[in-house]
């Protein structure tokens, strides 16, 4: 409908023809954090707990055992690029599972691209260890592994870390799915995973 396009553009141009140019844009807000490394890790954990996510702290060597313990032999979906050492015994690789097959999984384990401490947010960017969006959406439990060097303090720092990934499908996850639509009483878990487990792994130095 080129006619509609032309007319909307013409109306827009007529509407803005007159008037003063906009003020210069001031970005005086914070773009970097001030908290040290342990503080950032602690803050992320605290903020995630606020959303009623479950938070576990571990080391690279103890990770496998912890994931096995969390998975309890359930059928856990994993993206193709997830390292062998992160895969619990009964894992199912996502090689293009149908939505109903995804629905039959008990949970899913993924990594993330960056985590924001101040807002308790995990950012999934469709990478090798994160998989496609449906994988972290349909199963009822999402176990997300975060390395401490992936944690930033502020939202602008996360956007800086996402440079170059703008065109990928991105999902910002801050706690399990929730609604407050019934008399404003918060209920975790409507359509997304009802349980979010975040495993924070201290990097080996």
């Amino acid at each position: 409908m080129n006619e509609a396009r032309d007319e909307i553009l013409a109306r827009t141009r007529a509407a803005i023809r007159e008037g003063t140019p906009p003020d210069p844009l001031a970005r005086a807000y914070r773009t970097t954090g001030v908290v040290d490394d342990p503080g950032r890790v602690a803050l992320l954990g605290e903020r995630l707990l606020d959303y009623r996510a479950r938070v576990e702290h571990t080391t690279a060597t103890a990770l496998r055992d912890l994931l096995d313990e969390i998975a309890r032999g359930d059928r856990i979906g994993v993206p193709r690029g997830l390292p062998e050492t992160w895969r619990p015994a009964n894992s199912v690789e996502d090689d293009g599972l149908s939505t109903h097959e995804l629905d039959a999984l008990d949970g899913v384990i993924t990594g993330c691209t960056v985590a924001i401490a101040e807002t308790g947010t995990l950012v999934l960017a469709g990478g090798e260890m994160e998989g496609r969006r449906a994988l972290t959406l349909v199963p009822d439990v999402h176990i997300c592994v975060v390395r401490t060097d992936q944690i930033v303090e502020t939202v602008p720092e996360a956007f800086a870390a996402l440079l170059g990934r703008e065109h990928r499908p991105l999902t910002f996850v801050s706690g399990p799915s929730a609604t407050s639509d019934i008399e404003l009483e918060r209920v975790e878990g409507v359509h997304g995973p009802r349980t979010l487990i975040v495993v924070i792994v201290k990097e080996a130095s």
Binding site: D50, Y51, G120, T171, A178
Partner: peptide
């Protein structure tokens, strides 16, 4: 809006991504 530091889910997508969505 909801008085939360961040809402549970924010989705961003650009056109079509093969094999995802």
């Amino acid at each position: 809006s909801t008085g939360e530091r961040m809402n549970p889910y924010t989705s961003l997508w650009t056109g079509v991504t093969i094999g995802d969505g």
